[in-house]
């Protein structure tokens, strides 16, 4: 990991001196079999910070995020969320104490998934109150009030009694964000939240996320949306082959990258970004004989009209 260049990009620069980070990832390593996916990642996130993690597919960025709430069991290292530290201990992972600690970490670090993962047999409101009632023990009417507040925040109050099957992808993801918020977590983890969405629906989800970032939510966002990272992130981490290659404020990492690997990644990603941003209305210039469209995740729909 290269040292940060800008004083303002130092973790915790936004918080008063002496504040403790909410999330600590300490020398994290992850093996899938003999595949060494994470090779010693260290990360600190302070209250109200938004951190974006960018990188190619397969760079390990999603695995890193999933290790923070133990959806993947880290092989070596430790995770700390809101003062609860759990060391990687794959051999002892089934013990009751270890599992209780992991559940505590998960309550403090809520995740928003690429594929939404709403519960299809519950109405929207029941998706939102299930965990507060049964995991946190919140009384039902209180849970409903909280759920309605966050549903309003993501602009979906009128979908309160619908089933998820009747919602668009963007609406589903906004409900999923509300579901995470109803647990009143210390930090929100976003795992490529817009990658499964139709391009026209990406904006509504990013707007909600930008609002959250500006209101002071603590967020760790794995994303391909460079515009979001530039707008909302306090720090951007570029990951390649399981290590942080470059860290800094978005203007630096995205605007003036120092490492050649970051530069190459950005050239490839941003060079094609106009295709994505145009949301399906790409015009091939007069006389052009070829166009390259690169889709990282989800589907690409291509319709040609002469």
């Amino acid at each position: 990991m290269s040292e940060t260049r800008d004083e303002f990009a130092r973790p915790g620069a936004l918080t008063p001196a002496g504040a403790e980070p909410i999330v600590r990832v300490l020398a994290l390593e992850k093996f899938f079999g003999s595949n060494h996916v994470l090779r010693g990642c260290t990360l600190e996130v302070y209250p109200s910070e938004t951190v974006c993690i960018i990188g190619k597919s397969g760079s390990g960025k999603s695995t890193l995020l999933r290790c923070i709430n133990f959806l993947e069991e880290p092989t070596i290292g430790a995770i700390e969320v809101d003062g609860i530290r759990v060391s990687a201990d794959p051999l002892r992972s089934r013990s009751r104490e270890h599992r209780d600690q992991i559940r505590q970490i998960r309550r403090g670090a809520q995740m928003v998934f690429q594929e939404f993962n709403l519960f299809p047999h519950f109405r929207v409101i029941d998706n939102l109150i299930e965990a507060p009632i049964r995991v946190k023990g919140v009384p039902r009417d209180e849970a409903i009030a909280t759920a309605e507040k966050y549903l309003d925040k993501v602009g979906l109050s009128e979908k309160r009694d619908e089933y998820p099957g009747r919602l668009s992808g963007g609406q589903k993801q906004r409900v999923a964000i509300a579901r995470a918020l109803t647990m009143e977590p210390k930090v929100l983890l976003f795992d490529e939240p817009t990658s499964a969405l139709d391009p026209t629906l990406v904006g509504e989800v990013l707007n909600v996320m930008e609002d959250l970032a500006h209101e002071g939510a603590t967020m760790i966002v794995v994303t391909h949306e460079m515009a979001f990272a530039r707008e909302a992130a306090d720090r951007v981490y570029y990951v390649e082959e399981g290590v942080f290659v470059e860290v800094g404020p978005p203007e630096e990492v995205l605007g003036n990258p120092r490492d050649p690997r970051t530069r190459e990644f950005l050239a490839r990603t941003l060079g094609e970004a106009h295709v994505h941003e145009a949301a399906g209305a790409v015009r091939v210039p007069e006389g052009a004989d070829a166009m390259h469209i690169h889709a990282e995740a989800g589907e690409a729909h291509l319709r040609t009209e002469a």
């Binding site: 709430n69 959806l71 559940r103 505590q104 998960r106 309550r107 809520q110 995740m111 998934f113 594929e115 993962n117 709403l118 519960f119 299809p120 047999h121 299930e130 965990a131 049964r134 995991v135 946190k136 579901r179 647990m183």
Partner: peptide, 30 residues
Amino acid sequence: IPRGQLEAAAALGMTDQLTMRRIILPQAVR
């Protein structure tokens, strides 16, 4: 039942038993 359902329940802090009773079995019955 898709793996994502288990992950979502786990991420919300639900125990295995609660996940089975509230999330998996009702969908499996359908």
